[in-house]
Design a binder for these strands. Sequence first.
RNA 1: GGCGUCGUGGCGGAGUGGUCACGCAGCGGACUGCAAAUCCGUGUACCCGAGUUCGAUUCUCGGCGACGCCUCCA
Length: 467
Amino acid sequence: MTIQIHNSLTGRKEALVTLEPHHVRMYVCGMTVYDYCHVGHARSLVVFDTVRRYLRHAGYRVTHVRNITDIDDKIIQRAQENGEPMSALTERFISAMHEDCDALGVERPEHEPRATEYIGPIVAMIARLIENGYAYVARDGDVLYAVAKFAGYGQLSGKRLADLRAGSRVEVNEAKRDPLDFVLWKRAKPGEPFWASPWGDGRPGWHIECSAMSVALLGDHFDIHGGGMDLKFPHHENEIAQTCAACDSQFVNTWMHNGFVNVNAEKMSKSLGNFFTVREVQKTLRPEVMRMFVLGSHYRGPINYSHDSLQQADSALERLYTALRGVVVEWGVASVATARFAEAMNDDFNTPEALAALLALARDLNVAKAAGDARQASQFAGELLSLAKVLGILSLEAEVWLKALPGQSLDAPSVDPAAAEIDALVTARIAARKAKNFVESDRIRDQLLARNIVLEDGPQGTTWRYG
RNA sequence: GGCGUCGUGGCGGAGUGGUCACGCAGCGGACUGCAAAUCCGUGUACCCGAGUUCGAUUCUCGGCGACGCCUCCA
């Protein structure tokens, strides 16, 4: 059972062969912390969390690194605008990010290195690049990477230097030997935060931190490097140039890139201003819906963000939870669904197909329930839950989820203050039905329905849920 | 201009050289006091044109269209 992964470097699916047996070392580009996570960030977070979960499920030890960029131009600018120290700003958004991760069911990686804590390794790597002849100190004091010196430049993005120079929108900078050269170390201007270096006080450029931190934590040759499609060029291309030139190594075996979240067929992005933050959206949704939304399409394709898409994710989740409702769980029995699930996930993490396996299992479960086969139902429930866990969904009790209100966190669903009142109305309706007073019972049902509460009369009595 | 991704039924979204995705919505039926949930059944789907083939939605070429990267961006 091998796992096939689409490698952006070669453009095809390849069997995962880890450098160390049973151990995957994976680096994923994380956030620049000057604002809240939006749905685009959420997708990347969820996608690679799912990769991590599946690899562990498949028996690998996973060392997962997700960096935090806590020094760059935008952070400096934002901190100045707010009139607060940079560290106050970054700390705030780091905790916000962690809250968002919790809401999305995204586990903490093994390492979350911050750029500012790796200035030493960054400086050392830049020094090595200069030594090896790949970097130079420009007239204005910045240290630049000499792109032309690196033969493999463009291998990931499929670009040629000549093409890039031709119609490039890269700003012309007199200090650069080549317009495509990029900054490794940026000289501090007055009032800007800085660290000491052999080239004067300054700060790291954008790309070097990832090279330095991945090498420091995973070594100069590791298995998987991931991130959003938009990082492919120039960020990841530059990382390859830096690490390969500094360490004379292979660097990364498999590059993985997730597709964008679109809004009306346009990329959701900060610059377009068409973004929704995770916390904003989470207020109107039950927990896990956004994760389900992400899992509902393959990670490499685009997904369109809309109220309707979210609604559909909610429906599918509701179907799964409804099936599980009231069933005693028996663990450890696998049906054909488990094989289908594994086959789907082994094929480049095909989560839509994996979800289809879960939904098929829900049907089996419903059938067993209807047939009165409690044992069989329990086994299907156990199987469904153990597979769902690999995807990071169905983490709540069915009853809790179905009665949850939008905006509740995954960890501590608050008790709905209206629950007691709703229960009282349900009890009153049961009495009315017993007395065959259907006018009254229907009145109560309609009254609750107006509050988006759906009643279900089953053989075991009446239950309610939010619709 | 360069490079790249994509175009599947009402909607979302997998997949395949020749029987099945799956979910939502719709329709018919079962169940129900009526519903809801659930189950069963139900859809002339694969952008256009040419080619390869016994056979293409799936492979090749061309076209059209959408999007992305080439500047910060998950």
